[in-house]
Amino acid sequence: MKIVFDFGGVVFRWHPASFLARIWPHRIETLEQGAAAAAVFFQNYGGDWGLFDQGLISADEVVRRIAARTGWPLGEVAAVVRAVPDELMPIPATQVLIRDLRAAGHTLHFLSNMPLPFAEHLRKAYPLHEWFVSGLFSGHVKQIKPSAEMFALAERHFGVPPQELLFLDDHPVNVEAALARDWQAVLFTDPASARRELVSRRLLNA
Results as ranks from 00 to 15, higher is better:
101 L>G: 05
58 S>C: 05
81 V>W: 15
151 F>V: 05
68 A>S: 15
58 S>I: 09
88 L>P: 05
49 W>K: 06
60 D>A: 15
114 M>A: 02
92 P>G: 09
32 E>D: 10
162 P>C: 12
174 N>G: 00
115 P>G: 03
61 E>P: 00
192 A>H: 14
69 R>C: 03
158 F>T: 11
198 L>P: 04
16 P>G: 01
89 M>Y: 09
2 K>A: 12
98 I>E: 09
118 F>P: 00
99 R>L: 05
56 L>K: 13
176 E>V: 11
12 F>I: 01
131 W>T: 02
27 R>W: 09
55 G>D: 11
53 D>W: 11
116 L>S: 10
13 R>H: 14
102 R>Q: 08
116 L>Y: 09
46 G>W: 10
192 A>W: 06
103 A>K: 14
124 K>Q: 01
150 M>H: 09
33 Q>M: 09
141 V>S: 03
96 V>F: 04
92 P>R: 07
94 T>Q: 02
54 Q>S: 12
19 F>L: 02
202 R>D: 14
157 H>F: 10
61 E>Q: 15
175 V>S: 03
191 P>L: 07
50 G>D: 11
31 L>Q: 09
148 A>D: 13
15 H>D: 14
27 R>V: 11
105 G>E: 02
50 G>N: 08
141 V>T: 08
7 F>G: 07
146 P>C: 13
3 I>R: 06
74 L>I: 12
192 A>C: 01
133 V>M: 06
121 H>N: 07
120 E>K: 04
143 Q>W: 05
148 A>I: 14
147 S>P: 03
128 L>H: 03
185 A>K: 06
152 A>K: 09
3 I>E: 01
73 P>E: 13
206 A>N: 15
68 A>N: 11
176 E>H: 14
